[in-house]
């Protein structure tokens, strides 16, 4: 397993998992567990190297489990990695596709963007982040895009504004056949709201809390067009216009207090 740190809180792990690499397709995810006591954490794969037999995940440290993942050194391993899970992205030649990535969502977006680029689509990419320090995979994304725009909340790079600002400008000036948005839930929510006004089909990738990733627990249920779906088997990608985002945000914060407590305990242990 290889690790490099792009930013203090954004971590990349390349994991040796030949059978998963053999089967993985863009848009699919794996579930990782660091050690015996660990939680099962789903993460969508950012890259796959079938020859080397490795998969790559990129994540931001947001709690105890991701912090634990980030402490793994090259040569160490996750106790458990299972996958590839979920339905792969449906990629075909459609025309002009706008790929919108926010924060570490860009990592998930990368193989999907590449797939669309290779399928012969005209790919326009919009990357957004809090500031330039949080931007990832700029070069890799540029290499599979015909055009790329960068937005930062603080204006430290590219357009000073949100991805929706850049997207609106594109939608106003040209015909777009599909938008793919992957990032924080509020970003996907506002991108979908905008594209709905323009009647442009939009795909989003959801990452709710889950345990098994095979449809067994139902913890990852999301409301899509008023119907309950399981993100682990029916997703993780869904029609962005049909997703009940408020319900998703609500379910994602179910364990807020427990997560804080878990991290506090981790620091207490370290101080002993």
């Amino acid at each position: 397993m290889g690790t490099f740190k792009n930013h203090d809180t954004i971590i990349l792990n390349e994991i040796e998992a030949p059978q998963i690499a053999k089967k993985a397709l863009p848009g699919q995810f794996v579930i990782l567990k660091a050690n015996e006591m660990g939680e099962r954490i789903p993460l969508t794969m950012a890259d796959v190297d079938k020859k080397k037999g490795t998969i790559t995940i990129i994540y931001m440290i947001v709690g105890k489990s991701t912090r634990l993942f980030s402490t793994l050194e090259v040569g160490e391993g996750f106790q458990d990695v299972v996958g590839p899970l979920g339905s792969p992205t449906h990629i075909e030649k459609r025309g002009t596709i706008v790929c919108v990535g926010g924060g570490t969502g860009t990592a998930v977006l990368h193989p999907i963007t590449r797939g669309n680029f290779e399928a012969g689509n005209n790919v326009i990419t919009i990357l957004g982040a809090r500031s330039r320090d949080y931007l990832i995979l700029e070069e890799k994304m540029a290499a599979v895009s015909h055009e790329m725009k960068i937005c930062t909340d603080d204006g430290s790079k590219g357009i000073h504004g949100f991805v929706t600002d850049a997207l609106k400008e594109i939608l106003d000036t040209q015909k777009v056949d599909e938008v793919i948005a992957i990032g924080p839930v509020p970003m996907m929510k506002f991108v979908s709201k905008l594209t709905k006004e323009y009647g442009v089909p939009t795909q989003v990738s959801l990452n709710p809390i889950m345990i098994d990733g095979t449809g067994m627990c139902g913890g990852c249920r999301v409301t899509i067009g008023g119907k309950t779906k399981f993100a682990c088997v029916d997703g993780p990608e869904f029609d962005g216009h049909q997703v009940d985002y408020d319900n998703l945000i609500n379910r994602l914060t179910a364990y807020r207090h427990e997560e804080e407590r878990s991290e506090e305990c981790m620091f207490e242990d370290e101080n002993i």
Binding site: I211, D212, C217, G218, G219, R221, T253, A254
Partner: peptide, 16 residues
């Protein structure tokens, strides 16, 4: 209301 936080399948609750 089945999607409210606090509503579980027995599978999820027991697996946890």
């Amino acid at each position: 209301g089945e999607d409210l936080t606090g509503v579980f399948s027995a599978n999820e609750y027991l697996t946890r």
